[in-house]
């Protein structure tokens, strides 16, 4: 029997000021990471509504990562703290629903940390790949 490797689908929310710029820097420096990661630009990590994360899982995402500025460096002073608290709540609820903790993550990546962005994505994709397909929250009605 031939086993084809599962390719995960990762949604990454990146704040415009730090992490999105960090992802750009990773690109400038040609620091590879898997193409499974698809980035959505948001003005600040605090713009990420828990609904977006739920929707991603519902539509078949295997992992969701939210990247923002380091604590204290938020372009909007305090947005990343809100993101951290909101996601802590959401992730614990998701855990209860059976979405493993490794499938969700909040990470601080500054505009200067292209290498960290690439390393984070490599690590995250590897962990999510190991967990396999996420079937827990997937809405069958969303299936084509």
């Amino acid at each position: 029997m031939q086993i084809t490797e599962h390719k995960p689908l990762i949604v990454a929310f990146c704040c415009n000021w730090c992490s999105y710029a960090g992802a750009d820097l990773a690109g400038n420096n040609r620091l590879n990471y898997p193409a499974d990661v698809k980035i959505i630009r948001v003005p600040c990590s605090c713009r990420v509504n828990p609904m977006f994360v739920l929707r991603a899982f519902q539509k078949g995402a295997d992992g969701v990562i939210i990247c923002g500025c380091h604590p204290g460096d938020c372009h909007y002073t305090s947005g990343n703290y809100y993101a951290r608290r909101r996601m802590a709540m959401l992730f614990s609820m998701l855990d209860y629903l059976g979405i493993e903790r490794e499938r969700t993550r909040v990470e601080w990546v500054s505009a200067a940390e292209g290498a960290k962005f690439s390393a984070t994505m490599n690590d995250f994709v590897e962990k999510v790949t190991k967990l396999g397909k996420n079937k827990r929250l997937e809405d069958l009605r969303c299936k084509k």
């Binding site: 949604v11 948001v42 713009r47 509504n49 977006f52 929707r55 991603a56 995402a61």
Partner: peptide, 18 residues
């Protein structure tokens, strides 16, 4: 939020997860 509305980001999520 203008330019990053709930609907817009949700649509992006949907498009990526399709």
């Amino acid at each position: 939020l203008n330019g990053f509305t709930n609907g817009q980001i949700m649509a992006e999520v949907d498009a990526i997860c399709k």
